[in-house]
Design a protein around this nucleic acid. Structure first.
Ligand code: MN
Ligand code: MN
Ligand code: MN
Ligand code: MN
Lengths: 216, 216
DNA sequence: TAATAAATTTAGACAAACCTAAATATTTAT
DNA sequence: ATAAATATTTAGGTTTGTCTAAATTTATTA
């Protein structure tokens, strides 16, 4: 199988690929908290294993084999996050670091049984889709609250920023997955937004609106 | 914190300490599937961290700090084994290797909540005691079936050999934790034992009798 | 287009955890 | 009490994944 470091690189390449076709050495170095030269070393190794397509100076893409491994790690990460929240009562802002370790537990039989034990959840505590055992999942079409018009409404289904501080802020405001919100007004000065949720109104900054995702 | 290798050495020293006061380099090499020279390297490192007492050529003992870490890893191992059997329906012979990985998940908060989730189990699927969050546990006084007299009885409470093949054999014979057995007879030729269990009799070899533990 | 800046790779090291082979210490047997 | 056998440590390497500093390639800008 693959080492822990290899798995983390593949997962990071996968995540970065969602925004850019080719993933750069520096993007990976930033995300993995390491140096560009270390990334280059690893990219050569992953290319040797044909898990990525690598042309020096041109960035990388995952091969089908690499993507399969990456998706499997993400499946494990999200199932363990779901477990931690639903079964062990952790808060949604507490589970990511634990899942970063747990996603590397190798047994697929274990993860399939965990999936069944929790009755095949479709989304993790942050609204991200959980791939099934074949690696299939549909990413629902989300847009940031900041992208919608005044007097339209939507349901909170995800977050762009996964940091504890952001998640804790949302929790405190009651802005959690599944809540229905309506944009009442947009302040022209700083484009902050006035939302209606259940029977109260609240104001969120543009920054927050950009990182809170809804379906319409 | 400590590396995975360090944790495995501490755990192994702990287990070997139950039989011998001082644990030797070769004992560790055999248990950890490595070479004596590698063990020596690690013993120096653990001694530097004051997790073991090490005198060259004289073997090692755990310090209080080292024992605390070892017991915590064993707590995690056994709780995860319990989880795998009780919640995910694995067989008792299938869980050890998975638990070998899971015992290194670092969060103690996680393991304490897992403990609570399962209602504070006292014994793992193999009958081994699960240390509580303070590292306390009592090892019940077990003896091998081979040590008891004809016409005495006992309750199966543990195994000395944890190999899949032995566990599978016991499972097939119905010789599982909690079963009450009586020794009906001992064959003089090979000292194999005739047992009475529920309403049937069965015969086990001396080898099996040595590795099956009971309370009287 | 040529210079400059930014991104990336290469070169050379290092720590962790292993290894083999050789040296040394301890134990056991004569 | 020696000699032989066994156990342990030391010496010198290897692999993985990291680092800094220097060289090189690509992108930007004047
Ligand atoms: Mn996460
Ligand atoms: Mn998540
Ligand atoms: Mn076990
Ligand atoms: Mn066990």
């Amino acid at each position: 199988m693959n080492t822990l470091a290899e798995e983390n690189y593949l997962k990071s390449i996968y995540h970065l690929s969602l925004n850019d076709e080719n993933v750069s050495t520096n993007q990976l170095a930033a995300l993995l908290n390491t140096k560009a030269s270390s990334v280059t070393d690893m990219l050569k190794k992953l290319a040797d294993k044909t898990l990525i397509n690598y042309t020096p100076y041109q960035g990388v893409t995952l091969t089908a084999a690499g993507e399969k491994i990456a998706v499997n790690i993400i499946r494990k990460h999200r199932l363990w996050e779901f477990f931690l929240v639903e079964k062990l009562s952790f808060k949604w802002d507490e589970v990511h670091e634990m899942a970063e370790e747990m996603e590397h537990i190798s047994s697929n039989e274990l993860i399939d049984r965990l999936d069944k034990f929790m009755d095949y959840p479709k989304y993790d505590p942050h609204g991200d889709p959980i791939p099934d055992s074949d690696g299939k999942f549909k990413l629902h079409d989300l847009k940031p609250v900041s992208a919608i018009e005044v007097n339209t409404c939507g349901v909170i289904c995800g977050v762009r920023d996964h940091s504890s501080s952001f998640l804790q802020y949302l929790e405190k405001q009651g802005l959690t997955i599944g809540k229905k919100i309506t944009v009442n007004d947009i302040i022209e000065f700083d484009r902050s937004m006035i939302l209606q949720m259940e029977n109260k109104t609240l104001q969120i900054s543009r920054e927050v609106a950009n990182n809170l995702l809804i379906t319409i």
